[in-house]
Design a protein around this nucleic acid. Structure first.
Length: 392
DNA sequence: AACTCGGGGAC
DNA sequence: GTCCCAGAGTT
């Protein structure tokens, strides 16, 4: 393969060279600085947890994820928000699209919220997008990205762990994190039982994370811990033989990796039912309503929702929309973190005699073929694909 | 301390 | 189907 100058520059710029775990000193050795001169030599020493993990990261960690390439506070911040409760492989395409559309802080700050939500649609937890947008305007107003823990935590959407990640990765500060990965690694390493969301367990894990976070190479350590949890110390079937701290891991030693961390105490989810009304007029326009800014699918566009078919037909009568025909479709289930939603889609074809009725800015008749340019929840987007696009 | 926020990957 | 993920905000 021809190795062009440009490719070489790209390689040189982006490829992280493996680094020694301890600067210029070989692994597993350290200088005793206060020793008498005659003894002031390199002596063998047991490597710390951080050193072992950094060594592993240098050899096996992922160092070319999109947000690891051109590191800036803005890019790290956006990635950390997207990665909250969302896996890396899910985030990557969204991150690329988002960065193309909002390449820097200012472009995000001046953008309308609807535009931000549109590029977030499908990723879930939409409060993250609203908070991201709100924070972008706050930071833009400040004139510079906050660089202290307290200032960052003040911003909506940034908690202690995300603040720690931003400060350590983007600003090279000595700050710990405690995300799901770090919780799992530490809970196993120390064989700590109890749900890691329990405040009591969480306090202990913060204490441990703080004590292990090194002052040198904090950014790499932060990435390393998350990567270790995501690729080796996984929830199911952890790859213990590849783990750099397996030797002292209490869970591994006691065959407890499968029981730890303790799963969240489960509750049986309540079931809610509704009718989702796909209202189509004679010009094949579809009625969409914008949901309230907070709550389920906050700010996104959806179909009118009713508790029964009678209610939805009755509503059409109220709105003076003569029903031509209605077709009940197969019910589907969407599961949220705290309840099941069993929804029955119904296509109601109506004769829209009066377009002026629908001019409130939370209601809109949209051309069927163009609905996808709105911010839709995933189940709604799915219905559009299933029942609308093919009919037009 | 308990609830509220999604969507999808892994199993 | 279930569990849970680079968590944070609200009450």
């Amino acid at each position: 393969m021809k190795f062009s100058v440009d490719k070489f520059r790209h390689f040189e710029k982006n490829h992280h060279k493996p680094r020694s775990c301890y600067q210029n000193i070989p692994v597993n050795y350290r200088i005793i600085r206060d020793a008498p001169l005659s003894f002031k030599k390199i002596i063998p020493m047991k490597p710390t947890i951080a050193e072992k993990i950094l060594c592993w990261f240098d050899q096996h960690g992922r160092k070319d994820l999109p947000w690891q390439l051109e590191i800036s506070p803005y890019r790290v911040w956006v990635s950390e928000i997207m990665l909250q409760q969302t896996q890396v492989t899910t985030v990557i395409p969204y991150y690329h699209r988002f960065m193309t559309h909002f390449p820097d802080l200012e472009s995000l700050a001046v953008a309308p919220l609807d535009d931000v939500l549109l590029h977030w649609a499908g990723l879930g937890y939409y409060a993250r997008a609203r908070n991201l947008h709100k924070s972008a305007r706050l930071i833009h107003q400040l004139g510079q990205f906050p660089t202290s823990l307290d200032a960052l935590i003040t911003l909506p959407g940034i908690g202690r762990s995300t603040a720690g990640a931003i400060l350590s990765i983007a600003f090279k500060q000595h700050q710990p994190i405690l995300d799901g990965n770090v919780k799992r690694v530490l809970a196993r390493y120390h064989a700590i039982s109890g749900w890691t969301g329990d405040p009591k367990v969480e306090r202990e894990l913060w204490r441990l994370s703080t004590s292990y976070t090194p002052k040198q190479r904090t950014a790499d350590y932060t990435q390393a811990m998350m990567d270790l949890g995501a690729t080796v110390c996984t929830r199911s079937k952890p790859a213990c033989p590849h783990c750099p701290i397996q030797a002292d891991c209490l869970a591994h030693k006691n065959a407890l990796t499968q029981q730890l961390p303790t799963p969240k105490p489960k509750q049986t989810l309540p079931i809610k039912e509704c009718i989702l009304t796909i209202l189509m007029d004679q010009h094949q326009n579809i009625l969409l309503i914008q949901r309230p800014p907070s709550g389920i699918w906050g700010g996104l566009w959806s179909f009118p929702e009713f508790s029964s078919l009678d209610d939805s037909l009755g509503w059409c009568v109220e709105q003076q929309l003569p029903v031509l025909e209605s077709q009940i479709l197969a019910p589907q289930r969407h599961t949220f973190s705290h309840f099941h939603l069993d929804y029955t889609p119904v296509i109601i074809k109506i004769n829209n005699l009066n377009n002026n009725v629908m001019e409130a800015n939370t209601r809109i008749w949209y051309k069927a073929a163009e609905i996808n340019s709105l911010a839709l929840p995933a189940p709604i987007s799915r219905l559009v694909q299933q029942y609308i696009i093919e009919n037009v």
